[in-house]
Design a protein around this nucleic acid. Structure first.
Ligand SMILES: [Zn+2]
Ligand SMILES: [Zn+2]
Ligand SMILES: [Zn+2]
Ligand SMILES: [Zn+2]
Lengths: 121, 121
DNA sequence: TTGAAAATGACAATCATTTTCATTTCTACT
DNA sequence: AGTAGAAATGAAAATGATTGTCATTTTCAA
């Protein structure tokens, strides 16, 4: 793992949840860590290839990244103001494994997000 | 549902599985059904909004569309060959409602996808 | 018929991601 | 230390899916 990949992974660790390549690039710049956007993309590619980082897709298709092996959880997002609450996976994990197993799939991953309108909106 | 949306839905029916907007556009042209790519996108948007069509994301982020059965379900997708199995929601629906309720959210929706490697790959 | 509203499609714009390529940094060996 | 070759970097251009614009056409009810 090269220097840039380490930087990117550290930022992912601090951020905690999902972040886009561009968001990560921004945070790195705030931290005076000069690093090109291209390099951020390359670092993320190799982290994903190494299985160190998970990639999911936002509803509009943009890629979001998060450290693997983080305490796994899901998100409840307000469609109006963007407020986000972390929710434990619980039943989902079993549901995903069961469905995959019944269909002969292996190397399972899953995504699950809930969205709605929060009480403030 | 307007004329274009009907055409697009018919093609989706014939195609049977998932197809990208551009693939559908191509098929329509082969069938001498002159229709603009923009209109194909718009038809797909409204079909998705109406719940008549499912949208999933290929690994590279491109959108794929498929006619939806009437009952709500989720997808188990092979990361290697794209093979897709519909799985019933079951536990997810309750999990999403519960998490949302506990946090004061309303107008709830959710997404959940499972991915892995199928037995053929 | 007629006029407003919806639909259409060519074209331009947007924007995340990838590619290119010249330059810089690392690495290994003498 | 010096040097050659490999790997990494990043600015800028290219790519490509999707969306926005807007002038024109179609639909349809009064
Ligand atoms: Zn809110
Ligand atoms: Zn989970
Ligand atoms: Zn497969
Ligand atoms: Zn569901």
């Amino acid at each position: 793992m090269n220097k840039s990949a380490v930087k990117v992974r550290n930022v992912l660790e601090r951020v905690g949840g999902f972040a886009s390549a561009q968001e990560l690039h921004l945070v790195l710049h705030r931290d005076q860590e000069a690093i090109g956007l291209t390099t951020v993309y390359r670092a993320l590619q190799s982290l994903v290839a190494d299985g160190a980082v998970d990639l999911i897709r936002r509803e509009d298709g943009e890629a979001l990244y998060r450290l693997c092996g983080d305490n796994h959880h899901h998100h409840l997002v307000c469609k109006s103001c963007g407020k986000t609450v972390e929710v434990p996976g619980g039943a989902i994990e079993k549901w995903a494994l069961k469905a995959a197993h019944e269909n002969g799939f292996r190397d399972i991953g899953h995504t699950a997000e809930i969205f709605g309108i929060c009480s403030d909106c």
